[in-house]
Amino acid sequence: MFKRLMMVALLVIAPLSAATAADQTNPYKLMDEAAQKTFDRLKNEQPQIRANPDYLRTIVDQELLPYVQVKYAGALVLGQYYKSATPAQREAYFAAFREYLKQAYGQALAMYHGQTYQIAPEQPLGDKTIVPIRVTIIDPNGRPPVRLDFQWRKNSQTGNWQAYDMIAEGVSMITTKQNEWGTLLRTKGIDGLTAQLKSISQQKITLEEKK
Rank of each mutant, 00 (worst) to 15 (best):
E63T: 08
Y67V: 07
E180K: 02
T58K: 07
T175M: 12
I49P: 02
T116V: 14
Q115D: 05
K37R: 14
F2H: 02
K154V: 07
T129V: 07
S201G: 11
F94Q: 06
R147Q: 03
S17E: 12
N44H: 09
E208K: 07
G74D: 02
E169C: 04
K204E: 12
T158C: 09
E180D: 04
P124A: 12
L56I: 14
P124T: 11
A19W: 04
I130S: 03
D149E: 03
A95C: 07
K154E: 09
E169R: 00
E180V: 04
D165N: 04
A21S: 10
L30E: 15
Y28I: 07
T158Q: 05
N160W: 04
G159D: 08
K43I: 08
K154Q: 14
K204F: 15
A92S: 10
D54I: 10
E208L: 13
L78D: 00
E180I: 06
F150Y: 14
D23V: 12
T25V: 08
F97D: 05
D32T: 07
E122F: 13
F39I: 02
A34L: 14
N179S: 11
L125A: 08
P47M: 09
T20M: 11
L56W: 07
R143K: 05
A108D: 02
E45K: 05
A96W: 08
N141L: 05
A22K: 10
K3E: 02
P145H: 07
V135M: 04
L42C: 07
G170E: 01
D40W: 05
G74A: 04
Y72E: 00
T187M: 06
N44S: 12
R186L: 08
R134A: 01
F39H: 00
N179L: 05
L78V: 05
T187D: 03
Y117L: 05
R57T: 12
T38N: 07
A35R: 02
Y67R: 04
Y112N: 09
R41C: 06
K204Q: 05
A104G: 14
V171A: 03
V70M: 06
I137F: 05
A96F: 09
R41G: 05
E91G: 08
A73Q: 11
Y93H: 05
A21P: 13
I200L: 15
T187L: 08
F94D: 01
Q178K: 04
S199Q: 14
P121E: 06
N160H: 08
A34G: 07
Y112C: 06
M31V: 01
D61R: 01
L207M: 14
K37F: 13
Y112I: 05
P47G: 13
V131Y: 08
S201L: 06
D23C: 14
G189A: 04
Y100D: 14
E208W: 06
D23I: 09
Y105P: 00
V135P: 00
L125E: 12
V77E: 15
G114S: 10
K83N: 06
H113E: 07
K154W: 02
S201K: 07
K29T: 13
L64M: 03
L64F: 13
T58G: 06
F97M: 09
A88L: 10
K128Q: 07
I137V: 13
K204N: 07
D149A: 03
Y81L: 04
